[in-house]
Design a protein around this nucleic acid. Structure first.
Lengths: 374, 374
DNA sequence: TCAGCATTTGAATCTGCTT
DNA sequence: AAAGCAGATTCAAATGCTG
C-alpha cells in the first residue's frame, strides 16, 4: 500500500488501506472527493482513568464538575478535529455515518450539528444477542446508535428508498434495525485465536448502510478502518473504499480479509428504484403519439369529474364557476380542492368499457425508451 | 425532607402543579430534596414548511411557540440552565431521565455529562406505531431516546432489577423498549376535541420509568409537566410528584386528569403480558446477514425455475417475455401463474449438492431472536 | 351487538428540476 | 436566487360509520 504523502492533495488512492493518523491522512487527500464516510471512532479515549487538566495537574476527585469536563474536553477536541477533516473530504452532496454508544455518541452528535452537518436520522442498531448485564445494576445495554447526516442542510444525499423497502418486506425501513452482533466465522481471530479487534462490526450492518446510502461506484472512506468491515462490504457491493488505520496489526488483518472478498455480480447489485428515478414523460406526448386523441374525455379516479383533452396536452373541464384549464395536475388539484394532485394516477380514460389510468400509457412509453434508449 | 436553607427556599409542595418558568421555580425549592427528575423538554424541531400525507391531508405539526429557539446557542443555554437547576434539586443519590429526538438529545446528553451527571443507560423507546416518513426521503423516525443518569458517578441510584425482569417475562430488561404512542382514550382532548398537548407521552412509558427507578413514597419532579403524564403515573404508583408548567391551559388539563387518577391496588399493578406472535423476518435479512449472497441462485420447489438474489432482497429471473423482478412471493406467484405464493417454502438454495428451502434460514433467525425476546 | 369497511392520526428538521 | 410547477409519497391503530 502506498504511503506517498505529498504536502499537496494527491489523487484518490482507491481500494487501499492507508497508514497513519486519520486526521493527517484525510488532510492529504483532495477536498470534495468522497461520497460517503463511515466512522466508528474510539470512544473511551480519556473519558475515565488518568484525567489531566490542560496544565497537566492530576485530577483527584472524580466527582468534580470541572475534572470531568477536562476529560471530555480532550475527547471533544479529537472529535472536532477528525470531523473537520472528514467534512472537507466530502462532496457537497456527500454524507456521513458515525456509530457510538452513550459514552461518546452525544458528543459526536452535538459536534456534527455544530459543524453544519445536517442530521437525517439517528438509527438504533438493536442487537439481537447482546451481552447481558451481569451485575443486574442497569438495563442490558442492547443497542448502539448510528447517526446519518448529510454534509450540509440542502445536500442532495443518496437514499435508496425502494431498496430498503424491499429489504423490509415491502414496508418502509424504520430507524431501528435488528441485527445480530459479529460472532462465529465472521469474527476475525489473530494468531493466538483471540479476537483480532475488540469492536468488529457485523457485515450486515454495513450492508444496510451502504445499500441505503451509496450507489455502485461510489467512494466510501473509513477513517477508523480497524479490520476493514466497511471495506470488505464496499468491495462486495461494487463500491470503492479508502481505509485509514494506524495499527499495523489491524491493517494486516484487513488486507488479508478484503483480498478474499469477491465482488457480487453486476446484476445482483442493481436494486429496486423508485418512480422518481425514471425518465420524465410529458403528458402531451400521449396526445402527440395518438395514445389519447384531442377531445377525448378523461374521468377522475372517483368518477365524479370529467374533462376533455386538448391538442397541447392541457385539460379543460368545468366547476361551479365556469371553465378550468391547465395541466393534468393543476386541474385535478383544483377539482379536488387539494394543494396538489398527481394527475397520472388521478385521471382515467375508457377503452371498450374499461376504465384505465393514464399512467399505464406513460409506462408503455417508458418501456419503449428502455428498449431503445434515445 | 430537609427544611429550607436559602431565604427563598420553601418546603416541598408535594402533589401540586406549580405555575411559572421551570428554572425560577426549581431554584425556589430546597436543594437536595428530590429523588427523581423526569424531563421532556422542547425538542427544537426546526420545521420548515407544511407537510402533507400522500392523501393530501395536512400533518398537524408541532409549531408551538415554546418549541422555537433562535439557534443551537440559545438551545444550549436553555439546556444548561435548566439542568443546573435540576441537579441542585436532586438528592445525592438521585437520578434524572430526559427524553428527546435527534434534534436535541445529543446536546442534552453532552450537557448532562459536562455537568457531572453519570449516564447509566440510554434507552430507546421503539414506537410500535410511529408516523411514517411520507415523502420517502429518510428512514421512518420510529424511536425516541431517553437518557437515564445519576446525579454523579458513585451515586447509589435506585434500580428495581427484579421488578423490571418480571415486566419482561423473566429475562433482563433491555435498553430498547417497544411501546405504542399515546392515542385513543388516553390522549387528552381540549374543549374543541383537538389534542390538548401536541406531544403527550404514553403512560406505559412513565410506568416503566417509575417502576424501574423509584420506590413508593419517592418524590418525582417534572419541570416540563405538560398534561401531567408523569404526575398521573406517579400517583397511580404511590409516588409523590411535583409538576412545573407555565402554560395555564396545560395546567388545567393536568389538574383535572390527576384528580381522577386512583392509586392502584397492589394487585392491579401488573399489566397483562400478551403472547407474541412469531416475529416477521424480512427475506432481505438473509442477504444482509450473508446467509445468501447477492447473485446466488435459487430454485423453485419443482426445479423448473431459477432466479438470482439481489442485494436488496429482491429476486430477478426471466419468463418468456423478459425479466421479472420482485419479492420472493411475487416472483414465485408470477412464474407459477398463481394469484399468490409463499416464497419461503417455494424457493430453495443449494449447499454441497443439497437443495434446501430458504425457510430453514428464517427458522435459524427466529431461533436466535427467541433466545433474547424483546 | 357485531363484523366489516372507511376514515383519521401521530414530536417531521420529508422534492427537485426548470426558468 | 427565487419562483413556478411537475409529480411522488404512508404504517399501525383507533375511531366511526354501515348494514
Amino acid at each position: 500500500m502506498t504511503k506517498t504523502k505529498a504536502p499537496e492533495a494527491r489523487a484518490l488512492p482507491l481500494n487501499q488501506i492507508l497508514d497513519g493518523d486519520c486526521i493527517e491522512v484525510m488532510n492529504s487527500l483532495p477536498a470534495g472527493s468522497v461520497d460517503l464516510i463511515f466512522a466508528d471512532p474510539p470512544y473511551n479515549l480519556q473519558l475515565r482513568g488518568d484525567l489531566h487538566r490542560p496544565d497537566n495537574s492530576k485530577v483527584d476527585a472524580v466527582d468534580d464538575h470541572w475534572d470531568q469536563f477536562s476529560g471530555f474536553a480532550a475527547y471533544d477536541k479529537f472529535t472536532r478535529d477528525w470531523l473537520t477533516a472528514a467534512r472537507r473530504l466530502l462532496k457537497p452532496d456527500g454524507a456521513i455515518w458515525v456509530i457510538g454508544s452513550y459514552h461518546n455518541v452525544f458528543r459526536m452528535g452535538a459536534e456534527l450539528q455544530n459543524q453544519g452537518f445536517w442530521i437525517l436520522n439517528d438509527v438504533v442498531w438493536r442487537k439481537s444477542n447482546p451481552m447481558p448485564n451481569f451485575r443486574g445494576k442497569r438495563l442490558t445495554n442492547a443497542h448502539e446508535t448510528l447517526i446519518w447526516a448529510s454534509r450540509a442542510e440542502g445536500s442532495k444525499y443518496t437514499f435508496n428508498y425502494e431498496a430498503l423497502k424491499s429489504l423490509n418486506e415491502g414496508v418502509q425501513m424504520r430507524s431501528d434495525w435488528v441485527l445480530p452482533i459479529c460472532t462465529g466465522h465472521e469474527r476475525l481471530k489473530d494468531a493466538n485465536g483471540d479476537k483480532a479487534h475488540p469492536t468488529q462490526k457485523p457485515e450486515s450492518l454495513l450492508h444496510r448502510v451502504l445499500v441505503a446510502t451509496t450507489n455502485p461506484g461510489d467512494v466510501v472512506l473509513d477513517p477508523f478502518f480497524g479490520t476493514g468491515t466497511s471495506g470488505a462490504v464496499a468491495k462486495m457491493l461494487g463500491r470503492d473504499f479508502i481505509g485509514i488505520e494506524r495499527e499495523a496489526s489491524y491493517r494486516a488483518v484487513a488486507e488479508k480479509r478484503i483480498s478474499r472478498v469477491r465482488r457480487f455480480d453486476k446484476s445482483a447489485l442493481e436494486v429496486s428504484t423508485s418512480k422518481r428515478a425514471e425518465p420524465r414523460v410529458p403528458f402531451g406526448q400521449l396526445v402527440e403519439r395518438g395514445m389519447l386523441r384531442p377531445g377525448e374525455e378523461l374521468w377522475s379516479m372517483n368518477g365524479r369529474h370529467r374533462v376533455k383533452v386538448r391538442a397541447d396536452g392541457t385539460l379543460v373541464g368545468s366547476d361551479t364557476h365556469g371553465n378550468i384549464k391547465g395541466s393534468i395536475h393543476q386541474v385535478g388539484a383544483h377539482l379536488e380542492g387539494a394543494p396538489s394532485c398527481n394527475g397520472w394516477t388521478y385521471w382515467h380514460f375508457k377503452r371498450e368499457g374499461r376504465t384505465i389510468p393514464i399512467d399505464v400509457l406513460r409506462q408503455q412509453i417508458r418501456a419503449e425508451m428502455a428498449d431503445r434508449p434515445h
